[in-house]
Design a protein around this nucleic acid. Sequence first.
DNA 1: CAGTTCTATTACATTTCTGTTACAAATCCA
DNA 2: TGGATTTGTAACAGAAATGTAATAGAACTG
Lengths: 225, 225
Amino acid sequence: MEEEYKILIVDDEKDLCEILQFNLESEGFVIEIAHSGEEALKKNIQDFDLLLLDVMMEGVSGYKVANVIRKEMQLSVPIIFLTAKVEENDVLTGFNVGGDDYISKPFSIKEVVARIKAILKRGSRVGNDSNVISFKELKIDLRKKITTIEGEPVNLTRKEYEILSLLAKNMGQYISRDEILKRIWQDDVIVTERNVDVNIARLRKKIGEYGAYIKGKSGYGYCFQ
Amino acid sequence: MEEEYKILIVDDEKDLCEILQFNLESEGFVIEIAHSGEEALKKNIQDFDLLLLDVMMEGVSGYKVANVIRKEMQLSVPIIFLTAKVEENDVLTGFNVGGDDYISKPFSIKEVVARIKAILKRGSRVGNDSNVISFKELKIDLRKKITTIEGEPVNLTRKEYEILSLLAKNMGQYISRDEILKRIWQDDVIVTERNVDVNIARLRKKIGEYGAYIKGKSGYGYCFQ
DNA sequence: CAGTTCTATTACATTTCTGTTACAAATCCA
DNA sequence: TGGATTTGTAACAGAAATGTAATAGAACTG
């Protein structure tokens, strides 16, 4: 038999979930269900090959869930958004970007299955072309999220890596602590600006001589140069 | 290296903002959100590569925002206006400056992305580094917040930089101390007007021969010429 | 021209900002 | 679970930036 694909369905309409589950299981997919955004996020997302995600849900919306998955968990699982017809017309039509897909309710099971198969066949994810920033012998592989110096991997923590790649992506540009917080810590948690310093310090130490290229300037923030 | 484009979305419909944010982020753009004109104007507009600006908003309208950005801040960042179908006719006759564009709701994400990419491509093709102000060999990079003379960076403090870029953005125009205080010190702290003088003096010294181009005129203020 | 107001500059005081350390809390993983 | 790793906080000394006052000279005004 073929590979067994695991799909997570997230929707607060239980009936709909059941219908989807029944039909997709007969197609040979392995299904798990979550009835809310919160529930979905408790699952081990990386175990799934695809998500069917309702946009409008009580509490944590589908977009929130997607955001957490992409930003915090850094996973690129394909997502198919389920949207109600009304929303679609009000706001947007025919959206279909990147690796993700949209299907508006009511939809035919046939259509859903077809789209799922199309996406799974396509296989590879968004941004699968290697993307490496180099500065002398320091290399940051943005896709693998690996930093190396002269070929030797540098063991950076998540935050350290994020800061380094943010600065490297904006080479030569001063970025304020405030900005760094916004872009890396997002809006969810509130932490001291001092935190940035501390992480910068740790980062500098780890990248050795290259640490000197991360320049701090009073009133401006940091800059990789 | 791949460039990171920053886009500011200004719309009071929060759902729409979320959808746009998610989709544009999956396209690799860096997004910030403002839910009102006031909020938008508090942002550092010059940090953005493009604005998506809803025309109809409570309070400060999209046009108002655009006007402030163009006239007061003297920035030529491209703006895409989002308009409801009904408004469209009114609008097309009006404001249609430079690289601006209109998209009427409901719109497809595809379209939005396409237009954004078109505009950003156009911008870089022309070598439109409208973010750099040049005066002879003095260059102020508003994005990097770096000032150079003959390619050599000049080490300005934040206030010095702010004053210089304010004067340079309003080349040839006298700006009173009062105005400078309002624009740079904002409302937060109240300081003597003499302060401006002192900072101007320090600035002049740092930019050497160019210091002479910052002209003070009794009763008028300062002017870069 | 004399008096007044305005400005540039200096020196110094004050405030704010930064890098670092040590430690606590949270998270991860075996 | 318990230990390792990561992340956040508080504290603080030193550095950098900013503000103030004083003063001398320039610019204005009648």
